[in-house]
């Protein structure tokens, strides 16, 4: 359904080129819930924005984003607008993307009206049903964003994303800043949405464990591991993945030593080298992405040649 091939996004800045996404490849299969995790600043949001072509002008993009066979990188803005909202839903990180002066019902109905030319009445009936279904309450379609709590606004964003019945949902940090009980409600909410294909960005590992079929780990602009969720949590492959799991309170709260490297001048070879306890001489050259029985890891430790 979604195939990313050697995607690169570089930003031109005064300080130099920020290599925010640097040679990323992965595939999201139909019906799969694919989750992208990693520290903030590792390039997750930029990757999602590149797929949807929402990047600012100072971004240089190369590589392929194949969505049902079409390369989105090459589509014109007109075609892209049809895909956004109708075929691919975007649930952004910031709740400020809700318009404060329009009712939430109208904002959910808008993409449907725009893409399907349905009459307003039946669209609004559909939105009311959707609000009921997601536990927002059908009677709240006439309310404005400020009349909702943080958790409810997050639901409204989900409703807005799925109202036009898209093929693929991309959500950016849907649990950020919410407390534990609200977070578990968001898991339930995504469960309810059903067997849709999803690309979910988060650094909330509990959320990922509860929801994802597959986990991809991003570090400094590169994907360093892709594993099925169960295997990832029981036996993470990449040293960085292990470090992330060990920093969970329930697993000892052990920090990863050192700091994230610069994205303008990333370290040569493996980008995790300065922080890795297994680093050796060969890590000074770029490790390949190694296939281990269907799991993928970018680390020399797994090289059996």
């Amino acid at each position: 359904m979604l195939e990313i091939e050697d995607l690169k996004v570089y930003f031109r800045t005064n300080a130099g080129k920020v290599k925010a996404v640097d040679g990323v490849s992965f595939e999201v299969k139909r019906g799969e819930r694919f989750t992208l995790i990693g520290e903030s600043g590792s390039g997750k949001s930029v990757l999602a924005q590149a797929i949807l072509r929402l990047l600012p002008k100072n971004a240089e993009v190369s590589g392929k984003v194949l969505f049902d066979g079409r390369n989105l990188i090459e589509l014109g803005e007109e075609d892209m607008r049809k895909i956004r909202g109708r075929e691919i839903a975007w649930i952004p990180q910031s709740q400020s993307s809700l318009n404060p002066v329009l009712t939430v019902g109208f904002q959910c109905a808008e993409p449907v009206i725009e893409h399907f030319r349905m009459d307003r009445r039946s669209v609004f009936a559909k939105v009311v049903r959707l609000f009921e279904f997601l536990g927002i309450g059908g009677n709240r379609v006439e309310n404005y964003p400020h009349q909702f709590s943080g958790g409810m606004r997050q639901r409204v964003l989900v409703a807005m994303g799925i109202s036009a019945d898209p093929k693929l949902i991309i959500a950016d940090e849907p649990t950020k800043g919410l407390d534990a009980s609200k977070r578990s409600q968001i898991v339930e909410l995504f469960e309810k949405v059903g067997d849709k294909t999803m690309l979910i960005i988060t650094h909330d590992l509990n959320f990922a464990e509860n929801l994802a079929d597959k986990i991809a780990v991003m570090y400094c602009g590169k994907i360093v591991e892709v594993s099925p969720t169960k295997e990832f949590f029981s036996e993470p492959l990449h040293p960085y993945s292990r470090g992330l799991l060990d920093s969970l309170p329930s697993r000892g709260l052990k920090p990863i030593k050192g700091f994230q490297p610069s994205m303008i001048n990333p370290p040569k070879g493996c980008r995790f080298r300065d922080r890795c306890e297994f680093a050796s001489e060969r890590c000074k050259s770029e490790p390949p992405l190694i296939n281990l029985n269907g799991r993928f890891v970018r680390c020399w430790l797994y090289d059996r040649r």
């Binding site: 650094h203 590992l205 992330l244 920093s247 309170p249 709260l253 052990k254 920090p255 990863i256």
Partner: peptide, 14 residues
Amino acid sequence: TSMLDISTQASIVR
């Protein structure tokens, strides 16, 4: 630490 990554959270709490 509620707005920080888990790895950063661990280092701040430590």
